[in-house]
């Protein structure tokens, strides 16, 4: 087995879950997140030989993920807003409390603008600020301001729907 293949397998086993959650945060739809995950790792496979280790693997990989998500709009299939009331009602009948909260959180993220969804999901994944700044190419100072605003927005949306 080639070293590239081994390297790819290592990256996949370490990051596939995180990438999937990032894609799910962006699309709010698990089928689309599955498609995006595949697209991301196909791009990783295609570019792995060119990766020179100038940044961390995670930064490089998340950048591909962010760009793949942004590129995904060309298919015009993206889900932007979800009918929260209907969704919550549906979830409440079928799943437990913890799962309800997770689903609701995803739905609230899907109410944010596209770039904010990606930033907040990276933050929820506990990616350091400096790395998010490098992935998204936003200055750290500007990013802190943005994150402060997005956190507030997300908390407000969540609280609003939690009461429904």
């Amino acid at each position: 087995m080639s070293s590239i293949e081994n390297q790819f397998k290592d990256i996949y086993s370490t990051y596939s879950q995180k990438v999937h959650r990032l894609c799910l945060g962006y699309t709010g739809d698990s089928m689309q997140a599955d498609d995006l995950l595949q697209e991301v790792f196909i791009k990783v496979w295609e570019n792995l030989e060119k990766f020179r280790g100038e940044s961390q693997v995670s930064t490089w990989l998340y950048r591909i993920t962010v760009n793949t998500c942004l590129l995904y709009i060309r298919n015009a299939k993206k889900t932007t807003k979800v009918d929260i009331e209907k969704t919550v009602l549906k979830i409440s009948e079928d799943t437990d409390e913890k799962e309800n909260q997770i689903q609701l959180l995803y739905k609230c993220i899907s109410e944010l603008p596209e770039s904010d969804r990606l930033i907040i999901t990276l933050l929820l994944e506990e990616v350091p600020y400096a790395e998010i700044a490098s992935i998204t190419d936003i200055s750290e100072g500007n990013l802190r301001v943005k994150i402060h605003r997005i956190k507030q927005q997300l908390s407000t949306i969540y609280s609003k729907y939690e009461r429904i």
């Binding site: 790819f8 397998k9 996949y12 086993s13 596939s16 879950q17 999937h20 959650r21 698990s30 599955d34 995950l37 595949q38 913890k98 909260q101 997770i102 959180l105 929820l124 994944e125 506990e126 997300l154 908390s155 969540y158």
Partner: peptide, 16 residues
């Protein structure tokens, strides 16, 4: 919200 996020279980993903 971050605590809720962390409670997620691993999703079944395609084999490498």
């Amino acid at each position: 919200l971050q605590e809720i996020w962390k409670q997620q279980q691993q999703t079944t993903l395609p084999d490498v």
